[in-house]
């Protein structure tokens, strides 16, 4: 008597009752093992996803900040991440400095770029129609790509920061990923404190809410615009460094594009004007991007990866149906 029983590749071929029950219990223990493995995988993926989400979240905070304060969508967002990646790469391979040092360097470079672009281009576009600022930021992105290509070439580069790994029972985590995550949380926290407890931070928040009201209170709104843009760009470039701590290969001038799209999804998810919302949305996005993989992989005949990507967009779609202003938006 041949029985086909589910539980991996196990096929029972035999015909006595004792061996049947023995075999069935083996099937069940296989099943349990399989389920345990899936749960382990899921937990492992969720951890990695959370870590990545921190970096995603930080990367998107700059986008939301800029939009919240000056109402400009930075279409060149991903390219600034690329700048950060190259800062980390160059400092590591040329100067031999650890990426941790690249973080403040990236902030300074990012803010300098931000001020530069603001005073040359963006300042005039604050009251211009949206399309103009979209085109301007798009052009900024292309400019950065081409300059990067000129300086660094179109190759894919990477670096190896040997800081070891942590081996947990469910998964192995390279320390660099952990550092990237801690860095993201630290920076986000710092930003939160800075925004709530300092004069300038409060001024930025007031301009985000009502620039005319801020103006009559005595806030120098034009300066806040420039500063916010610079901080936004600075954050984005910094996140490029953290990203390379997470994924230290594939650094090339054209790597930005894919991240812009993800950032947009995350920003809208978090409520376009709230940097904190963006951070949390980033965490959630990372969790789902990785966690969904395991769940999709359970469905036979389905390729998990493409589904995971489209999942993000479905999430966004449904969220916007329910709460059009995003998770934390107004």
């Amino acid at each position: 008597m041949k029985i086909f029983v589910r539980g991996g590749d196990f096929i029972y071929k035999g015909n006595t009752q004792e061996t049947l029950s023995e075999s069935l219990s083996e099937v069940f223990s296989n099943r349990v093992k399989e389920e345990k493995m899936i749960l382990t995988l899921l937990a492992g993926n969720l951890i990695h996803g959370l870590l990545l989400g921190g970096v995603y979240g930080l990367a998107t905070m700059g986008l939301s900040l800029i939009f919240g304060v000056i109402n400009v969508v930075n279409v060149g967002h991903g390219q600034f991440i690329m700048v950060g990646a190259f800062v980390a790469l160059t400092m590591f391979t040329v100067l031999g400095l650890s990426p941790v040092i690249a973080i403040p360097a990236a902030l300074i470079i990012g803010m300098a770029l931000g001020f530069f672009f603001f005073y040359t281009v963006m300042r005039r576009l604050i009251r211009a129609p949206e399309l103009t600022s979209l085109l301007a930021t798009f052009a900024m992105g292309i400019l950065l790509e081409e300059i990067a290509k000129l300086i660094f070439g179109a190759d894919f580069r990477g670096y190896y920061w040997a800081v070891g790994k942590i081996t947990l029972p469910i998964t192995t985590i390279p320390m660099s990923k952990l550092y990237a995550f801690i860095g993201s949380i630290a920076i986000a926290l710092f930003l939160y404190l800075w925004f709530s407890k300092t004069r300038i931070g409060t001024a930025i928040r007031s301009v985000m809410e009502d620039s005319e009201g801020a103006r009559v209170c005595g806030v120098n709104v034009s300066w806040i615009h420039a500063l916010s843009f610079a901080i936004g760009i600075g954050l984005t470039v910094m996140s490029g460094v953290l990203l390379t701590m997470f994924i230290p290969v594939g650094i090339n001038p054209y790597m930005g594009g894919g991240y812009t799209l993800k950032a947009f999804v995350i920003a809208v998810l978090g409520g376009l004007t709230s940097p904190y919302g963006a951070f949390f949305a980033g965490l959630i996005f990372g969790l789902i991007e990785n966690g969904a993989y395991t769940l999709f992989a359970l469905i036979p005949g389905v390729a998990p990866f493409p589904l995971t990507v489209s999942l993000a967009f479905w999430m966004l779609f449904f969220l916007l149906l329910v709460k059009p202003t995003g998770l934390l938006g107004k």
Binding site: T202, A203, S206, C217
Partner: peptide, 23 residues
């Protein structure tokens, strides 16, 4: 203003404090 312009998501306390901070 005729139609008030509060900083909506900030607390009343913070709103008023902003006046003190920049006046």
């Amino acid at each position: 203003f005729q139609i008030p312009r509060p900083f909506s998501s900030a607390s009343v306390r913070e709103n008023v404090a902003i006046g003190a901070m920049f006046g």
